[in-house]
């Protein structure tokens, strides 16, 4: 990674680190949710931005994470952090089962299929299947976790827990970018046939991208359940999926700074203008159109052509 990029990330993380010092409890909550949404948006970006699959139902995996961990915690009294491996495994399996028969569909058809899965998921949780999901009211009384004797009972500690997970996810995505797997995603997005013809098993990588995106979103879902201790279907509906989808396109596909900025613009900005309640989404819609017209590839588009230095040395 180039030095200037590292500095930018350090500044960004530094701001997040000291942010709680300057915020009251409601702004702290917005900060925590911003971090959680950033994680979901980054996972959406793996599927949509990197592997180029039009997934407009990503909030479903966010919801699967939240609901499974909440059920494990409230019904079976399992500490919520222990739910993470289970959640990751289940959402990876569900995503692969969903994707296997549908992944070959052309862009827009895949988009409507993922919308469909999201709506089916909504009905399942709203209809209180097996009496576990709590219907339209959702699930109450999720316990905050503890780790090595430390209780994450305060909102501040939950903020830093989410912050810590965000750092891990960012490192992981940076690793992805400089690995054979991550490049395979770009190749199959840019030209699926050409990628196949140099021997890349594009179907495998598509499924992997789906599973990876779903798993990360589900981890964010666990954090969401921890933060609010109450979850309900609206937090994972189609409108949320569209929000994450839009964040990636507005910010810039497969660009990490773009996705983070997109999350800020699409989630935090409307919170800042809460006082202008009635007009804000009207203006917001206009802004979306303008952004796309002025920056069709997103506000901070992904830059290619960054290769290891030792390839350039003796030039």
């Amino acid at each position: 990674m180039r030095k200037s990029a590292i500095y930018k990330y350090l500044v960004f993380l530094g701001i997040l680190l000291i942010y709680p010092l300057f915020s009251n409890s409601s702004w702290l909550a917005i900060g925590t949710t911003f971090i959680i949404y950033s994680i979901v948006a980054l996972s959406q970006d793996i599927v949509l931005g990197k592997a180029g699959m039009f997934d407009m139902g990503h909030a479903m995996f966010f919801g699967i994470g939240a609901y499974i961990s909440a059920i494990m915690n409230t019904v079976f009294n399992i500490p919520i952090l222990w739910a993470i491996p289970v959640v990751v495994l289940i959402s990876a399996i569900i995503s692969v089962l969903m994707a296997m028969p549908t992944i070959h569909l052309r862009g827009d058809y895949l988009l409507v299929v993922t919308i469909g899965f999201n709506i089916i998921f909504q009905q399942v949780i709203k209809n209180n299947v097996f009496g576990l999901t709590g219907g339209p009211n959702g699930i109450f009384g999720i316990e905050r976790p503890s780790l090595f004797g430390f209780e994450f009972s305060s909102d501040l500690s939950v903020y830093y827990l989410a912050f810590f997970v965000l750092i891990l996810i960012l490192i992981m995505i940076k690793n992805l970018e400089t690995s054979a797997v991550g490049r395979a995603f770009h190749y199959l997005r840019l030209d699926n046939l050409a990628a196949q013809c140099v021997g890349i098993n594009t179907r495998f990588y598509r499924l992997f991208a789906f599973a990876l995106g779903a798993s990360i979103a589900s981890i964010a879902g666990v954090l969401f359940a921890i933060q609010y201790t109450v979850i309900s279907p609206e937090s994972f509906n189609l409108m949320q999926s569209i929000l994450f989808f839009t964040i990636v396109i507005v910010g810039g596909m497969s660009s990490i700074p773009g996705v983070l900025l997109g999350t800020f613009l699409m989630f935090v900005l409307p919170e800042i203008f809460r006082d202008f309640n009635t007009y804000r989404y009207l203006v917001f819609g206009v802004m979306m159109i303008l952004t796309m017209i002025l920056r069709p590839r997103g506000i901070i588009p992904k830059k290619f052509g960054i290769i290891p230095k030792y390839l350039l040395k003796d030039k």
Binding site: A180, A184, H186, Y187, I200, F304, L311
Partner: peptide, 23 residues
């Protein structure tokens, strides 16, 4: 010609290494 046109020359050639890589 079907190249990964948004990517640079080295990245394009690297695509041929993808399946040879042991990662």
């Amino acid at each position: 010609i079907r190249l990964f046109s948004d990517m640079c020359v080295a990245e394009n050639i690297m695509s041929g290494r993808n399946q040879i890589s042991k990662q």
